[in-house]
Simulated assay, not measured.
Amino acid sequence: MTTDRFREIKRILLQILLLNWAVAGAKIGYGLMTNFTSMTADGFHSLSDGGSNILGLIGITIACWPADNDHPYGHRKYETLFSLGIAAVLFYLCFNLISEGIRHMRSPHHPQIDIVTLLVMVLTTFVNILVMKYEHKEGKRLKSDILISDAMHTKADVFTSFSVIVAMAGVKLGLPIVDPIVTIVISLFIARLAISIIRQGSSILCDTAAILDNKKIIDIVLTIDGVNTCHKIRTRGREDDIYVDMHVQVNPDMRVDRAHRISYEIEDAIKKGIPGVTDVVVHIEPKEK
């Protein structure tokens, strides 16, 4: 199942990579032809979407490697780590866009806007919306940090495309200054999304609790015959790779082999009852008298 999941994520990333490059080519090409800064900037943003797809492909390739002596818990967190790389790409793009916007504010220019320019923006924006919705839906289904982060990157592209259309309206109204201003606004949207990606990824890498409500775990554990109480529950990991450890109290007169079987029963019950749990460590303790 895990291998199939990684294979499916790779397939989705490759499909979206081709779409992003097609969209980027259309925007950059026509933006340069018309000297329209916002469209060109938006095109390079779409190009960076393709770079994020490649980054995602590298990350997911490493994440599917099996556990080894140096990585006994496997390599799945590399998917989360590489999703932070997408945030880094966004921050870099943000800096470039701000620089470009300031440069054009100091040296105003007059881009050529026509019906073809508008059609290019509308069509590419429509494609980006479809890509974003598809990638986000698949990311949720496959519980993939890479796909969800990349969908947020594409969402930034949608925001910027709408902003470019606004800039086009400003130019048509005789306000070319709108173009560089919108370029700077674009960068702020991108920075906000980058921060969101970092916040989500860091919560996993810093071992934030994967299951906030431990009641379900307790309810499952207490159904096991021989268990008296359950406490000190800790969870961590990704949504599809959750690690659980806990302390369980049993009768102090219980045989060691029976206590050992209980720990296995608890592990099996939790894995069956809570999707995404891949490892359960049970510390058996004698019940306090």
Rank of each mutant, 00 (worst) to 15 (best):
M1D: 09
F6N: 07
F6I: 11
E8C: 01
I9Q: 09
L18K: 05
G25Y: 06
K27T: 06
K27S: 04
G29N: 04
Y30I: 08
L32M: 14
M39D: 06
T40Y: 04
T40V: 11
G43N: 13
F44M: 09
L47K: 06
S48Q: 03
S48F: 07
S48K: 09
S48C: 12
D49W: 08
G51Q: 00
G51T: 00
G51R: 00
S52D: 05
S52Q: 01
S52N: 15
L55P: 00
I58F: 06
G59M: 03
A67Q: 14
D70S: 07
Y73F: 15
G74H: 10
Y78N: 07
L84M: 08
I86M: 15
A88T: 10
Y92E: 03
C94S: 15
L97F: 12
L97C: 03
I98M: 10
E100Y: 02
I102V: 10
R103V: 01
M105F: 13
R106D: 03
H109R: 04
H110S: 12
D114T: 09
I115L: 13
T117H: 07
M121K: 00
L123K: 00
T124Q: 11
L130Q: 09
L130E: 09
K133R: 14
Y134T: 11
E135R: 13
H136S: 06
E138I: 05
E138C: 09
K140T: 08
K140I: 03
L142A: 08
K143Y: 01
S144F: 07
D145T: 12
S149A: 15
A156E: 04
F159G: 07
F159E: 02
T160N: 15
T160W: 01
T160F: 03
F162G: 15
I165A: 03
V166C: 03
A169R: 02
K172A: 07
K172C: 01
L173Y: 14
I177P: 04
I177F: 15
F189G: 10
I190R: 09
L193C: 00
I195F: 14
I198N: 11
R199H: 08
S203Q: 13
C206S: 13
T208Q: 14
T208R: 13
A210Q: 04
L212C: 06
N214H: 11
I218N: 13
V221D: 01
L222P: 01
I224H: 05
D225I: 07
N228Q: 10
C230L: 06
C230R: 06
K232D: 11
T235G: 02
T235Y: 02
R236Q: 07
V244W: 00
D245S: 12
D245E: 14
N251M: 04
N251Q: 04
M254D: 06
R255E: 12
R255D: 12
D257A: 09
D257V: 03
Y264A: 00
E267H: 05
D268K: 14
A269N: 09
I270D: 03
G273D: 05
G273M: 10
P275W: 01
P275E: 07
V277M: 01
V277Q: 02
T278H: 03
T278P: 01
D279R: 12
V281M: 15
I284Y: 11
I284K: 03
